[in-house]
Design a protein around this nucleic acid. Structure first.
Lengths: 234, 234
DNA sequence: CATAAAAATGAACAAGCGCTAGTTTACTTG
DNA sequence: CAAGTAAACTAGCGCTTGTTCATTTTTATG
């Protein structure tokens, strides 16, 4: 494993590192090994339950039931609840991590990206609706369970996002504001998905359905355009 | 108690109802009765712990320890964990509920309010930093524990906020967009506080300190001004 | 097809949970 | 200050939790 690395807050500007070597256990014909298949079922079940109920609110027996196994079998694939949780988090964060790495590269090449970032994020989160909730649970607990890994996982994404925003044509935002702006935009975008269950209770409408998502995408475009227009310079 | 009220989504536009009769148990000289004082200590401890660790992640023994009593004593003041949680939620939501009620009245009188709303919310949340986290935990769990009370508590605030936004001078936003805009603005504002612990891990800076809060307030003012300027009409 | 490894299982353990009962202490009030 | 009530305590019950272990069943391989 990692040698110590006690939340060192040195943030490399370019996220070019690897997240983890992702080993695929499968036959030459692409069929998964039996063990790897149930490991995946466990991860899927755990992701859904952790996202909805958090770490403490999720039982290994609940996870096992959803994965259609008896709960000691989990220990054939993961070394305890905490490690399973970390595995879920890592697998969940990977697509977001990759998206930001990719967007950051294009931002350094001078492409205008703000709208692409929004679209990319909306698509990604729509495909992985558990991701914002997992992140939010971690955020609320102060990242206690991530702590060491947090720097290497979240920090590069944040830096990439800040880089993208600071490359925008608008000269409106100072460097100081850029940081807070990234936070605000993230909360606005991810919060949409996080809010979905409660919004459904209040209004009856399902934010996760495509029609609503398109309205949200439209709104975000309008907002981004207003925030990053070249005209006004404060 | 309430007669059924199974999440009826009829939202009265003006939040003029009462939240709950708030009974104060104190002597004529203002001193709290012994019992009422420990009840308050329990509520304070529970609020902090529920906000950080959620419902499942908080034990009555933890709460008792922080309130400096033994855990069965909690039952002299609250009828079980669930009811304590609801009491925490209600006491926590009250100031926000009152703020929105007050702002909604002024909005109906035609005052321009958008910036005042932001300032009011920032001040309120700075004073009650546990509130956004409590709400967020409830949001993530799908409001399961609130469910029935949710309509009467959250719905009026949401409607008040939507009313305020739709009274803004800008003709830019359609009614449909107004709803999503309220959500986005709420997430932006409340998310700032929710993110504080993780942001501190990443950057070392404390978002809850006044200096940072003022920068955030400034940023929010800029954003609101851009979103609700009279000029541009899309 | 035999064999070893991998995976799944039932049974059960210690620890911790919400909660109750019974009793003692502290407070309030006539 | 005495009596009654409210509030705090100790002890512990029934249950669930994460985890272990010995065993059986399944899967992969020479």
């Amino acid at each position: 494993m990692d040698p110590a690395l006690p939340h060192s807050p040195q943030g490399t500007a370019e996220p070019t590192e690897e997240l983890l070597p992702l080993e695929v256990e499968e036959f030459s014909d692409g069929r998964l090994r039996k063990g790897a298949e149930t490991a995946e079922r466990i991860l899927n079940a755990a992701e859904e339950l952790f996202a909805e109920n958090g770490y403490a609110g999720t039982t290994l027996r609940d996870i096992a039931k959803r994965a259609e196994i008896r709960n000691p079998s989990i220990y054939n694939h993961f070394d305890g609840k905490e490690n399973l949780y970390l595995a879920v988090l890592e697998r969940g964060l990977r697509p977001m991590w990759e998206l930001f790495q990719q967007l950051a590269i294009r931002a350094n090449q001078g492409d205008e990206l703000d709208l692409h970032v929004v679209d990319g994020l909306m698509d990604l989160l729509a495909e992985h609706p558990n991701l914002p909730n997992l992140m939010q649970h971690e955020t609320l607990s102060g990242g206690d369970r991530l702590h060491a890994r947090l720097a290497e996982w979240v920090q590069p994404m944040f830096n990439a996002a800040a880089g993208i925003v600071s490359h925008s044509p608008s000269k409106r935002w100072s460097d100081e504001q850029t940081t807070l702006l990234v936070l605000a935009l993230y909360n606005m975008i991810a919060g949409y998905f996080t809010m979905a269950p409660m919004y459904k209770l209040i209004s009856g409408e399902n934010l996760l359905e495509e029609e609503m998502r398109n309205k949200q995408r439209h709104l975000l475009h309008d907002i981004i355009r207003l925030l990053f227009s070249e005209e006004n310079t404060k």
